[in-house]
């Protein structure tokens, strides 16, 4: 098919071959070809943060990343955190505190929060808020999300 090509991606620790349009973004490929739908397509402009994933241990926007620029780079989506106890704690805390309502922003928030705890195991409120400033939530008003991250951090650090 014209305009399609094979991408070889290092995806959640597994070498994955994908046949997709040459100008696909990483988000397109994750959702449409790999059935990895934790990362959401919100604004597709880098603003909302719902598509945040890790590349080489750095959080980035999947919607602004060309699939063709991902060769040789380690991509990790929320689905790749199944055996990460810290992510487990964050997920439980988000559920318990009411930090999840419609859930659209949750995967991106969790990636951002997990990265924050890697950089700063016991973040202050202000630090949490600043880290989350690139993740929009239209339901919760953020207070419960901030509380959830603080309580998960506290439990993990204990």
């Amino acid at each position: 098919m014209p305009g399609k090509q094979v991408f070889t991606l290092d995806l959640n620790g597994r070498e994955t071959e994908v046949f997709a349009p040459a100008d696909a973004t990483l988000l397109d490929v994750l959702r449409d070809n790999c059935a990895l739908r934790a990362a959401k397509r919100g604004c597709n402009q880098g603003v909302c943060g719902a598509c945040t994933v890790m590349i080489d241990d750095v959080p980035v926007r999947a919607c602004l990343t060309m699939a063709g620029a991902c060769g040789g780079r380690a991509i990790r989506t929320l689905e790749g955190y199944g055996d990460d106890p810290v992510m487990g704690r964050l997920q439980e805390a988000m559920n318990a505190s009411g930090g999840v309502q419609c859930g659209f922003c949750t995967s991106g928030l969790l990636i951002t929060a997990r990265n924050l705890l890697a950089e700063s195991p016991r973040p202050a409120q202000a630090e949490i808020r600043s880290a989350l400033s690139g993740n929009l939530c239209r339901c919760t008003g953020y207070v419960r999300i901030v509380e959830a991250i603080a309580s998960a951090a506290e439990e993990v650090a204990r």
Binding site: T25, N44, Q45
Partner: peptide, 14 residues
């Protein structure tokens, strides 16, 4: 040319 793609890919998506 593409550097980070932060603006270029946003423009492509739009």
């Amino acid at each position: 040319p593409m550097s980070g793609g932060a603006s270029l890919v946003a423009m492509k998506n739009a």
